[in-house]
């Protein structure tokens, strides 16, 4: 009985392996399941779109690879990369030394400074008059590390939010005096009707907390993919694909490191 079954089993296993190998898995581009417009958000048709979604698909086209946008809860996105549920993190992930210890990065594909938003009639100077004021930042962002490093002695109280939207809402509700966040996101934010009494008051200077720009996060053993992506990033920057996407979403060119 055993003798007859074993070859059949082996054949079956071999056949299964062949099937899995032949159906090439698409590269899974991990983005935050929490929308981060205009980088990643759901369009009117319910599909994910945005600057980074379109740029990611353009990169895949440049690499001639199959890709799938894979939304993942931000809190669990690093374990998801680690366990292979996604192959890359492409969601405004700033390149920092701390992160480099755990994951690999491609070359940067964009860089934006942090911007302070406050009420138009706010009577304090930024960043010099922040003493006793409350500043809202999103945790786990370079703006948060910049705020607590560069503003540690300014007397400002730093409130850390899970999501940028919460900080924005609390600014509008008067619970924080100013917020520090990505300039692009803030440019969008002050355009909203609800934020018409608010404006970008200052831009944070280039600081090591902001890192080298934004790159795609990869597993540390994925060197082949990193090299492919680096080449693809160089190509979409050189041929203007990135710049035109950037113009479309931000009315300015943020491509490059």
């Amino acid at each position: 009985m055993k003798r007859t079954l074993l070859p059949a089993l082996t054949a079956g296993v071999l056949a299964l392996t062949a099937i899995t190998a032949s159906a090439a898995e698409p590269l899974k581009i991990g983005i935050s399941a929490e929308p981060y417009p205009p980088f990643t958000y759901k369009g009117a048709d319910g599909d994910w779109t945005g600057f980074e979604v379109e740029l990611g698909l353009a990169l895949c086209e440049a690499m001639q690879a199959d890709c799938a946008i894979t939304p993942t809860g931000w809190g669990g996105i690093f374990p998801a990369l680690d366990s292979g549920k996604i192959d890359m993190i492409m969601n405004s992930l700033s390149i920092t030394d701390k992160r480099k210890k755990v994951i690999d990065f491609t070359d940067p594909y964009y860089y934006t400074p942090g911007a302070y938003v406050a009420a138009k009639d706010a009577d304090f100077a930024i960043p010099d008059g922040l003493d006793g004021k409350v500043l809202g930042v999103q945790g786990a962002t370079t703006n948060a590390s910049y705020a607590r490093r560069a503003l540690a002695d300014s007397g400002v109280e730093i409130k850390i939010y899970d999501r940028q939207e919460q900080a924005n809402r609390d600014l509008l509700a008067g619970r924080v005096d100013t917020i520090l966040a990505d300039k692009i996101a803030m440019t969008e934010f002050v355009k909203r009707d609800a934020a018409r009494d608010y404006e970008i008051r200052a831009t944070a200077p280039r600081h090591k907390a902001f890192g080298e720009g934004v790159g795609i996060g990869l597993r540390q053993d994925d060197d082949a993919l990193r090299e492919d992506l680096d080449a693809a990033i160089a190509r979409v920057i050189d041929d203007g694909t990135c710049a035109s996407l950037s113009q479309k979403y931000f009315e300015t060119d943020i491509c490059g490191g």
């Binding site: 809190g75 690093f78 701390k98 992160r99 994951i103 945790g139 786990a140 948060a144 590390s145 850390i160």
Partner: peptide, 10 residues
Amino acid sequence: NLVRDETFLV
């Protein structure tokens, strides 16, 4: 959560 977000240690 802040430690997790910055060091990636869960």
